[in-house]
Amino acid sequence: MMGVVKTVRRAALALGTLAAAAAIATPAAALETVSVRLKWVAQAQFAGVYVAKAKGFYEAEGLDVTINPGGPNLNAESLVASGSDSFAVGGGIESLMASRDKKLPIVGLGMMHQRTPYVFVTMNDSGIKTLKDFKGKKVTTFFTGAQHTLNAMLLKEGVNPADVTITAQAVSMTPFISKEVDVATVTLYNELNVLKARGITNVTVFAPDDYGISVPRDVLITSEKMIAEKPKAVQGFLNATLRGWKYAIQNQGEAVDIVMAAAPGLDKAHQTAMLAEAGRLTIADAGTTKGIAALDMDRLKGAHDLLLNAKVINAPVDFATAFAPQFWDAVPAADKKM
């Protein structure tokens, strides 16, 4: 029991010291205090944010940024909408559209992954060569949005999704590896690397973008309130975050070390592979032609229509209020152009 008392006392002391330190630091620096919520646990998928923080890019923009990692069952969109967090690396375009549909006052600032970051994979020896072969097969996918993408792809190839056995995918890739299912869904930056790490490379990939369907993901979001009240902070955050990403893509080894320092439990090889893939998704298409996190409105419109057809959203979403492209436009070219 004494140990507990001591620990508690030590914790209280530590808190006191922190509070004192904060009290001293705040007036001197006079930084705007904001926070960014990640949609998932700290990892290289969010390298740009960690680099911007570690390299002082945020501070240079007058911001004191707290990075709040996410986790399962934590909704970044609602945390931003409620004002708990100023910014977030949110879910995909589908999350932004669904949130706007539910009248959450969140606004998209930029799009990190220009292409659909997940693909459907099958073993080369499964006999599945085209989407048409999915008929009658067992397919698992993420029921957090990816199922709509899959349906749209199948319909485009003339396959009735009802003819395919589609079930929710568990965390583990083991059912796919042990061939209990024929097709599984993988993110390019995570599960595909897990497969590779297990020595599974003889797979056929069906990427939505190859079938004209794009669901860009990892939207940078903020709230309508932030835009109205602190537009300078919004601009500064976007500038620094994009600069952070550019640096991370150009200095991947250092960026992985920065992420690892923040979340020491991670596996370095895995994070290195993750950053490489996340970087590829970031500079794909408009990410290169226009710049990092560009809002490719045509592509976003296509995703919106898909979601409307799938009844994920009940009514068309007004893009003029759902996005605030003026901030991205104002980011200096040096920060966003590769």
Partner: peptide, 11 residues
């Protein structure tokens, strides 16, 4: 967190 990291990276 260690549990989550291990779980999602199948470590």
């Amino acid at each position: 967190i260690l549990l989550l990291q291990a779980m999602y990276m199948e470590n």
